[in-house]
């Protein structure tokens, strides 16, 4: 008997993306550059996060015509973003045959209380998280992949590091608790008890976890891999850099050879300018994307 869209199949695609780089692209030409550089997937967008941040206004799901052109250009899987809680944008993307949906804080939230019930879909979802509780809530809602949020569109890796370290620390803490303390831990994390027990036993997240939000150089990418990321999303970092094709290629190499400093030297040389970055403390707190959803 054949079964489609099971959790194994949805989470399984994320397993196949591991050790890879997922790149934000806004048109077929960029998608081709990403694929040629060795990206494992592309995120089809109207504007990269740095432009969304600069231009302001409501950021919504990308025009399906743009997504379709990108889907027709590359053979690697194509992802697209929906607003937090916008289940109809998700239905539209599923009907188009998108490979992965990112329910993303980079877009303007459509629901200030609830996320999409991702169990209603056969297409897999990736969701952002800044800590373990948030990651497990999203998985409880059916997410088949997690990405630490970082702070998108800044080219500043500090928040990505903070979120990855937070999740690692919280997992480590769970693994040393006696079983009778896990219910209280679940309450404090705001996370489903069954998932908390799973994490305490297996010492890892139940799904693949990529790093996102602020990765701008091969060194950034390799650092996130050494901190335990399964792979990286690079948003504005590629196409806001001086030489996107070269930067894309270098970041792909850096993610594969993240533990090999000699190769990291080679790929980091003469890349031209990385994207201009933003100091996090210069952003008004209300404009930080990482606190959207929760």
């Amino acid at each position: 008997m054949e079964v489609f869209g099971t959790f194994t199949v949805r989470a399984g695609l994320a397993e196949m993306l591991k050790g890879g780089v997922i790149m934000d692209v806004t048109n077929p030409e960029q998608a081709k550059i990403a694929e040629d550089a060795g990206a494992v997937s592309v995120m089809a967008l109207e504007r990269v996060p740095a432009d969304i941040r600069a231009q302001g206004g409501v950021a919504r799901m990308t025009d399906p015509a743009i997504i379709e052109r990108i889907m027709n250009t590359v053979t690697i899987p194509v992802m697209a973003k929906v607003r937090i809680g916008h289940f109809v944008e998700a239905q539209i993307l599923e009907a188009m045959g998108i490979d992965y949906i990112d329910e993303s804080e980079v877009l303007t939230p459509a629901d200030d209380k609830y996320h999409v019930n991702k169990w209603d879909f056969k297409v897999p979802f990736v969701c952002g998280a800044i800590n373990l509780g948030e990651a497990l809530r999203r998985i409880g809602e059916g997410a088949a992949m997690i990405r630490t949020k970082g702070e998108a569109g800044t080219g500043n890796v500090v928040e990505a590091v903070k979120h990855m370290r937070t999740i690692n620390d919280e997992i480590a803490r769970l693994t040393i608790l006696p079983e009778e303390e896990l219910m209280t831990a679940a309450k404090n994390l705001g996370a489903p008890y069954e998932l908390v027990k799973w994490v305490a036993r297996e010492k890892k997240l139940p799904v693949v976890n990529f790093s996102a939000g602020g990765i701008a150089t091969p060194a950034d990418a390799a650092m996130m891999m050494q901190l335990g990321a399964d792979g990286v999303f690079v948003g504005s970092g590629i196409f806001k850099s001086e030489n996107p094709a070269k930067m894309a290629h270098a970041i792909v190499q850096a993610v594969t050879h993240y533990n090999n400093p000699e190769i990291l030297v080679k790929v980091s040389k003469s890349l031209g300018g990385a994207m201009p970055g933003l100091e996090i403390s210069d952003i008004e707190e209300g404009n930080l994307l990482q606190f959207r959803g929760n």
């Binding site: 054949e2 489609f4 899987p77 045959g97 490979d99």
Partner: peptide
């Protein structure tokens, strides 16, 4: 033939 069953939505489990 790559991706011969179509996109992710056609991914499956079979006994």
């Amino acid at each position: 033939r790559r991706n011969a069953y179509g996109r992710q939505i056609s991914s499956r489990e079979v006994d």
